[in-house]
């Protein structure tokens, strides 16, 4: 069984279902991940992301359906898979009362390797926390914990990495750094399957799946998902943003209206509504400094539109 064979898909998942008692967590999940790809699973908490990751890393049995990782079945080939995958669970699960270096050493030893042997792979990441290698893992800041966890997941030179919400709860600067590291790992040929609740991280993946209530709503490249948004979308701004939401929803031809940072995004039926009509409706309600622009959808607009269907 070789991993270098480029014809083997990194992940093949077919009709996977999993329920906890009567609550379905995964419903007919099917997808494939190519070698060397960054594949993002994007959706809110409770959508089924962690369950999917646990099925693929052989920690949980699916109720039905089949899945394979690097060509090996997650049930029959679980021992082989475990040797070849790196897994970083959503919850920080290293040994809090061991030092940074001790944690890394344990993971290396468990996989019959040494820190020295694969140091080149973790150098960029680990060198940032190396000055603190004698500190207990429990005493690290959030960003440093993530770097240590990623180092531990990489130390046995896996061919594929499963990262379950590596950026949750960490600030925008650390998030950006982490994504830069993932790009570097990709360039070294490692396949990365990563989940996140942050929609703005979608553009950093090669392909993404939007997951909600245990179902993949759509799988495509970020660009493909955006070009699949067929509604007319406008951004609207005014001097009183709070009142503007309610008033926009009262206008005929406004289908949906959501706050989006410094704008409100509305999908409109442009057979009955023009920007001029909308502007005069809003002026009648006492709004001023109104700006209305047609815009291209973002991933979050797409997610909400798909969720609405």
């Amino acid at each position: 069984m070789t991993l270098s064979g480029s014809n083997i898909k990194a992940v093949v998942c077919t009709d996977v279902c999993k329920s906890y008692e009567k609550v379905p967590a995964l419903r007919n999940i099917s997808f494939t991940v190519e070698q060397g790809e960054i594949f993002g699973v994007i959706g809110p908490d409770g959508a089924g992301k962690s369950t999917l990751f646990r099925v693929l890393t052989t920690l949980l049995l699916a109720d039905s359906g089949t899945a394979s990782v690097e060509g090996m079945n997650v049930v029959k080939g679980y021992k082989e898979i475990r040797k070849n995958v790196g897994y970083m669970p959503g919850r920080f699960s290293l040994y809090q009362d061991l030092t940074v270096e001790e944690n890394l050493k344990i993971f290396a030893t468990l996989f019959h390797t040494t820190i020295e042997e694969n140091y080149y792979l973790i150098k960029d990441i680990y060198s940032q926390i190396e000055p603190f290698k004698t500190r207990r893992a429990g005493a690290l800041s959030g960003g440093m914990k993530q770097k240590l966890a990623l180092s531990c997941a990489l130390i046995h030179k896996p061919s594929i990495l499963f990262l379950d919400e590596p950026t949750t709860g960490i600030d925008p600067v650390s998030r950006k750094e982490l994504w830069e590291m993932l790009r570097k790992l990709k360039s070294q040929g490692i396949t990365i399957v990563v989940s996140t609740p942050y929609m703005d991280e979608a553009s950093l993946c090669d392909r993404i799946a939007l997951i909600r209530d245990g179902e993949f709503m759509k799988i495509d490249t970020p660009k493909g998902i955006i070009s699949g948004f067929r509604k007319e979308l406008w951004a609207v701004r005014g001097s009183n943003m709070s009142a503007l939401i309610g008033h926009l929803r009262e206008v005929d031809g406004v289908v949906t209206c959501f706050a989006f940072g410094d704008n409100h995004h509305i999908t409109v039926d442009n057979t009955i509504l023009t920007k001029e009509i909308l502007r005069s409706r809003l002026e009648e309600k006492g709004h001023n400094e109104i700006i209305i622009e047609k815009i291209e959808a973002g991933i979050e607009d797409c997610f909400m539109e798909l969720a609405n269907r």
């Binding site: 959706g43 809110p44 908490d45 959508a47 949750t168 709860g169 609740p197 929609m199 909600r212 939401i245 959501f258 706050a259 979050e300 997610f303 909400m304 969720a307």
Partner: peptide, 14 residues
């Protein structure tokens, strides 16, 4: 709003 879906996140802000 950490981890909350996009629609609910906006309802929360309203």
């Amino acid at each position: 709003t950490g981890g909350v879906d996009p629609v609910t996140r906006r309802q929360f802000w309203e």
